[in-house]
Design a protein around this nucleic acid. Structure first.
Lengths: 339, 339
DNA sequence: CTGAAAGCGCTTACAG
DNA sequence: CTGAAAGCGCTTACAG
């Protein structure tokens, strides 16, 4: 029942612990035959190196901490999956620390991570203009900020929301839409501003005028629902023929209301969402064309970068923007004739 | 820049490492004054015990592994948050291992957890009748199964779906509804059967006959949408005055379609969902009364139990069912007059 | 090519 | 009440 150690392996293979260690780590030079004999002995005995012992001497724990304040994890979970996948292949595991936006709890987690001697720290949030509820003490631990405010001189990863918004708008324009409105979340989120800029930029590129101003509000269905009335209620001033929404919930509310008041989607109005929250986007009637932020890949990239930082590779500070893509479903009519 | 160790603390407080260790761990007996002096020295120097070193000698890593195959984490995330909260207070951190339902990856994670010498393992899934895609090797590590198939002789946690379904149905009956239908997910999920039984049990208790059979299908809005037509399409055979839905998505589809065909919710028909997926339930028009599975608390309970198992406390095998509660919103009319 | 020894940072008998 | 020593399971100079 007691765990097999490197001593057991060494004894079994008739070598010293030193040699066993070298064979198992593929370092040093030794007779091929010896190395293989040792490796086979390890396999035979079901040897697993004790990473606490290994960490103690090598001063690396082969762990990183993921600090998140995104309780429901819609953003963090795909990121975590990508991160974890990149890491596990290299033998590093990730601690999940749910801060719940509470300074007390965050601090507790932070201390735990220090005691565990994590090799790196990933701070993951749900908005790019807010950091942790506490100041991160200067620990000297490599740190990456994902979807969170990234302090000067640190490295961050963020989806390229400007590019995503542009792509969405260009998709609409490419389908012949000319009067493209934008309904989005609260004005005080950095992301809304960036997406609105992407919308304007794409319109400008196409020589199109924006249909009114960006309609800021909440990230909710209710906001989309209300803005449908706002945009399509008074026919006097004409109507947009497309709406680019700041997230999928808004798009859902928009489409639901449009359907209720007899505006046909996509025939009369094309709608694009943002987030590609699949369970949501696919259930919208019609299924929602939306922007995917590529969070899984973002997490993977961040993981690779973290691995480099841990290995001491020089890593320039600054924010990396990873690509967003338009996922075409049916709410824009791109497939109305094709399929 | 180099980390402060217990030796630094000992030197600073003018005691041996042994005494420092005892003071910091609050073991042994020594002059109060000495103990306090040491603790203050530690605080002053910002000492954090190295848990790898501590783990090496105490044969405990103060970590557990959370193996999940619930990619999107709707179920796992609240569970993980509760688990983590219960654990962090006791100094144990949790590794997040996303198996993605892939045997290869799951195995890799499992090996990583063994190398990390986790004190416990939590297997978390999204359905109670499916386990990990690989057989868990007999490691002797305390293990808890949450929302996943729990092998004979192991300990598991699961929401009390039968009780939840009963409570939902009784809520409906208590509001005077007499013709209560049930629309739910696929027949081959264990949870659908259990919830359907709860529905029948509650009806029986109230002396009510079920309105037709349980309508199995998918866990989707589309299914709810279609079943609305099925239940309310032909007026010839009468209509239910309430529908208990197997999850919130089904309820959402149901309500959306009901509204479209002119059936008023809750006036004509009361609807209850299941899951209390808030972002969803709150956006439904009207906001959805639904069953909350208490996943956060379930996770906390599991964490406490795990802590006990790690400490060697005898823990009877078997499945624990944690309570589900009805969250009242507006889709049943419980508040139609009140508010 | 191989091994004995020191040491990573702790805890815990054991001795005083 | 306090400390010197051994040891947890590894890796890595150092010596041969």
């Amino acid at each position: 029942m007691t765990r097999v150690t490197i001593r057991d392996v060494a004894r079994y293979a008739n070598v010293s612990v030193t040699t066993a260690s070298r064979a198992l780590n593929d370092t040093g030079r030794m007779a091929r035959e010896t190395r293989e004999r040792i490796i086979q002995a390890a396999a035979k005995l079901g040897y697993r190196p004790n990473s606490m012992a290994r960490g103690l001497v090598s001063q690396r724990s082969f762990t990183i901490g993921l600090l998140t304040n995104d309780t429901y994890g819609r953003f963090t979970l795909p990121v975590a999956a990508g991160l974890s996948a990149a890491m596990v292949d290299r033998g590093v595991s990730v601690f999940l620390c749910a801060g719940e936006g509470d300074p007390q709890r965050t601090l507790l987690n932070l201390e735990a991570m220090q005691e565990k001697c994590v090799d790196g720290l990933v701070v993951s949030g749900k908005r790019i203009d807010r950091g942790l509820p506490v100041e991160l003490p200067r620990t000297g631990i490599p740190t990456i900020y994902i979807n969170a405010a990234c302090p000067e001189g640190e490295v961050g990863f963020v989806p390229d929301d400007s590019g995503g918004a542009e792509a969405a708008t260009l998709h609409l324009a490419g389908l012949g839409r000319r009067r493209i409105a934008h309904v989005t979340g609260p004005r005080n989120f950095a992301a809304t501003g960036i997406r609105a800029d992407g919308w304007l930029k794409a319109l400008d590129r196409m020589g199109l005028a924006p249909w009114g101003e960006a309609l800021f509000g909440e990230w909710s269905e209710a906001h989309g629902y209300r803005m449908a009335d706002h945009l399509f209620g008074q026919t006097s001033r004409g109507m947009p023929d497309a709406v680019f929404c700041g997230n999928d919930q808004i798009a859902r509310g928009m489409i639901d209301r449009l359907t209720e008041i007899g505006v046909r989607v996509p025939k009369d109005v094309a709608v694009v969402g943002y987030d590609n929250w699949e369970i949501f986007a696919k259930a919208t009637r019609p299924p929602l064309t939306t922007v995917d932020m590529g969070l899984l890949e973002l997490g993977r990239q961040a993981g690779l970068t973290m691995l480099g930082m841990i290995d001491g590779k020089p890593t320039p500070a600054g924010i990396r923007r990873t690509p967003c893509t338009v996922v075409v479903r049916e709410s824009c009519g791109a497939r109305s004739e094709a399929d």
